[in-house]
Write a protein that binds this DNA or RNA. Structure first.
Length: 219
DNA sequence: ACATTAAGTGATT
DNA sequence: AATCACTTAATGT
């Protein structure tokens, strides 16, 4: 995780990706106040208990958001994609400033960090910022409900397949660099169970298996 | 050649 | 679906 300076390429990316969402004035304010960071795949961006000082806006890449218990067992909540922001930070603005989730870079990503003290100002000042914040909050809530549904109503077989499809979507790649162990950890089950399910998906011709890698053939 | 790590599988609960 | 126990396969040193 490293800080980078704004340059033309980043400004262009900001303009391109957000011009249909944000006004010129807001984009200028983001450019003025936002700090840029780059993270590499696998980097932990925020961990449990970390104090939030910035609201992250994903400029490029993908991030996975995980819950963790005392023993270190994880559960994937959802993925964030370009243009998304973290709902945890928003709840932090309303009181508790400690993160209750862990965020890990799913792939190399670029993030704009907005200082939290801008949040309340901007919500009053820019209607487009206000919509963005509330829309993001509601989108994250929907995703959370979706993950509760899959946890409560889907069997492991379906959950694994959904996981693969989601992962494929955020990486825009049908080839996934992932181990059985990692999937097991994200879905909070054992490696053996994942291996068996993946094997049966392979027999159905829906995926191809390799070491440290698998390919989704049908979706 | 050897160690380490990932993945496959039968048996049991 | 989870766990154990063991095997096989791939990869690094």
């Amino acid at each position: 995780m490293k800080n980078v300076d704004w340059n033309e390429a980043y400004e262009n990316a900001l303009n391109e990706r957000f011009s249909f969402l944000f006004t010129k004035e807001l984009i200028a304010a983001i450019r003025e106040n936002g700090k840029l960071i780059e993270v590499a795949e696998g980097d932990i961006i925020m961990d449990l208990g970390d104090t939030m000082q910035f609201m992250p806006v994903l400029l490029d890449g993908a991030i996975k958001v995980l819950r963790e218990d005392e023993e270190g067992d994880e559960l994937l909540l959802y993925f964030l994609e370009t243009g998304d922001t973290c709902a945890m930070t928003m709840s932090c603005c309303m009181g508790d400033r400690k993160s209750k989730v862990r965020t890990v870079a799913e792939r190399d990503s670029k993030i704009i960090m907005i200082p939290l003290d801008k949040m309340s100002d901007w919500i009053q000042e820019f209607t487009d910022w206000r919509s963005f914040v509330f829309d993001s909050y509601s989108a994250r809530l929907s995703e959370l409900l979706e993950s509760i549904d899959s946890l409560a109503f889907m069997n492991m077989h379906e959950r694994v397949y959904k996981y693969l499809k989601d992962k494929m979507m955020v990486n825009s790649n049908a080839e996934l660099n992932v181990t059985h162990r990692e999937i097991a950890s994200d879905l909070h089950t054992s490696r053996v169970v994942i291996s068996r399910i993946l094997k049966s998906l392979e027999r159905e011709g829906r995926i191809a298996l390799h070491r440290n890698r698998l390919e989704v053939l049908e979706w």
